[in-house]
Each structure stands twice: as C-alpha cells, then as structure tokens.
Design a protein around this nucleic acid. Structure first.
Lengths: 170, 170
DNA sequence: CCAAACTCGGACACATCTTGTCCGAGAAAA
DNA sequence: TTTTCTCGGACAAGATGTGTCCGAGTTTGG
C-alpha cells in the first residue's frame, strides 16, 4: 500500500468504494471465481483490507463467495442489472449522509412535538439532495462502466485483464 | 449537550452543518449582531463548538463578526442570495466526497499515464453524482428555508425568535 | 483619556470512526 | 483422509471529527 487518500474536505466517503467498483468491473470479464488476493495485487492494494470490502459485497448479495482450493468471488447477477448505487450502499452503508437531530424541539423556544408533523425544512432539502445523488448513481450500471473502459482504453484492455486473472500467479 | 449523532451509515457529513444552517435561518429575523453564546442556548448545543462553525462561516464571508460589548454575528448578504450549498461548503469544505486514486495506473497491468487523457469512468460517474447533489443544494436559499418555516410553524415563530434573541438573557 | 467588560479567534485534548491486519473455520481437491 | 486453499469475523493503529479552553482585540462607559 503506497499512499492513503488525499481528501482535503470533510464530506467524504469510504475509500474502499473505489476498490470495490474496480473489482466489480474486472469481474465482468471472467466466469471462474477470482480470489481476493489476486484482485488485490492486480490493483496494488492491501489484500487484507480489500477482503473486507468484498465481504460487504457478499453480504449485500452482489457477489457470491466460493470457498475451497479454486474458490474466489463471482458476480451473482448480470452486470447490466448491478448499479453503482448498489455497490456504494453495500460498502458505505445505506444511511443518508445527513441525519436530522430535531434541533427545533430543543431549547427555550422548542417547537412542541405535536406541531412537528412535517419534517424539518432543512432535513427536507438535504434529503432531496441525497435522493438526487443516489438517482445519479442508480442510472449507471457496472456494464456501462465496463463499456466505457473498452471505449477509452481499447477493447483489448479487459481481455488482457481476464487473461491475467485466470493465469496462475507469477 | 445531550446526544451525538445517530448516524449508522458511513457516508456522513459533519454534524455541525445542521447547526450552522439553523443559525443562518434565525439570523434572518434580526438586524443587530447576535453572540454565539445566545445562539447556542437557543438551540441547546455546545457554545464552544458552535463558535467553531460560525468561524467557518465568517471565513467564507457569509457572516460578519462584530467584536466588543454589543458584538456578535450578522449575515453579510441578503438571505435570498445565500444558498444552502454555500453553508455546506463553508463548514464541511469544498472538496467532493469522492477522490480518484488512479488505481488504473497501478499494478502489473497498469495503464500508462500517457493513455489516461480522459478521467476514470468511475470518477466521472461519481463526479456527476456529486454535481447533482450540489445543484440540488444550490437551488435552495436561506430565505426559502425561512419562508418554509413560516409556512409550517406559523408566521409568529420567527417573530418570537427575533424577540428572544434581542432580549437580554434570563 | 483610561479602564473594564464582553466578544471573537485560534490553539489544545478527547472520542469516534475509518483504515489496516491478523488468525481461525470451512470447503473443495488430491 | 489429508492437505491446501479460500473466506469470515474478531483484533489493533492511525486519522478525523468533536468538544473545550484561554488569549487578542474591540467597543462601551466613566
């Protein structure tokens, strides 16, 4: 593992999401199970930590884990039916970024709970923004990503990856 | 200070954003400077920590700090010209949630840097989602929030807040 | 003009979370 | 049956967010 995240801001998401997405894309090109170790050295990342992300994907039902000597991970569904949002929610959790603390019900001028039938305006705006974010991630599938990679890096790229993944290690 | 955040997921933003937004909304109803201490006890939150958020707003130029005996914080611009995104970026930082680590340039099958003219497909999707999120926050202003509060809690609500803020403390 | 009181501002600890690592349970192959 | 390889969850370390404190600066009053 070389360097951590370079994030400067504070609104940040788990760095493992990037790893998980790359793994899903490369798993598009293979049919046999691929162990976590192999995926880790392909991306040059920590094998132990990548395993944790793959476990999250397994728990969410996006990939199927096969144990034993020729075991590894395989995609369970068609790549076109797996959205980026699915992966993000599997790794980073399904909870929204913003959670209303109901400040309006606190302090000397607290609004009575009976008057709080509608959600706080602030929470409403945040919820809407979160919905827009999720919708943008839902419209893109893993298959779309793979197609995009083929368009930019050439169709030979994923073929080489597939060959490297299925070949016994150096 | 009663309880912290109840966030379960991992994609989370600073909790102070909620405080800062509430402060901006209530500052709509006053013209004289309001000290951080007063705002803190109105919301029943830590005064010392709220001060930090207000400092961030001051640094971003959203509020103006007045020192001295009758000092405090005042909005610099018209509430209609301050967007929710302005506040979020001031407190939580302007950086996007996702930062590409350029995994494709690492490992045995690394893509050469010369071939990376276009950004990584994954980064592109994440960037688009982040743009949609920011756009949703940009379309709502502090004035809109205040208006929304008046619609739900009644027009008397902000008047009472204004009166309480300008009245010497209990 | 001077002193006092009140304010913000940045520098200092604590708690929580993400990141990273390890070893044991389980299954397929030999 | 044994061996080997895999995943799975439990265990520390670093980083970040959270919370607090005291000093610098300014306005007000005498």
């Amino acid at each position: 593992m070389i360097g951590g995240l370079i994030t400067v801001g504070r609104v940040k998401m788990s760095g493992g999401v990037e790893w998980a997405l790359h793994c899903c894309v490369v798993l598009t090109s293979v049919e046999e199970p691929v162990p976590a170790t192999r995926l880790a050295e392909l991306h040059d990342v920590s094998a132990s930590y990548l395993a944790k992300q793959l476990q999250a994907l397994s728990r969410a039902g996006l990939v199927r884990s096969v144990q034993g000597k020729a075991g590894g991970y395989v995609l369970t569904r068609e790549p076109a039916s797996i959205t980026v949002l699915d992966v993000v929610e599997a790794v980073d959790g399904p909870s929204p970024a913003f959670t209303c603390t109901e400040i309006r019900q606190r302090g000397p001028l607290a609004t009575p709970a009976e008057a709080c039938t509608t959600p706080c305006p602030i929470a409403r705006v945040m919820g809407g923004a979160d919905a827009a974010w999720r919708e943008a991630l839902r419209t893109v599938s893993i298959a779309d990503l793979a197609q995009d990679v083929a368009s930019t890096s050439g169709p030979t790229a994923l073929a080489r990856v597939s060959a490297w993944l299925t070949t016994p290690q150096t």
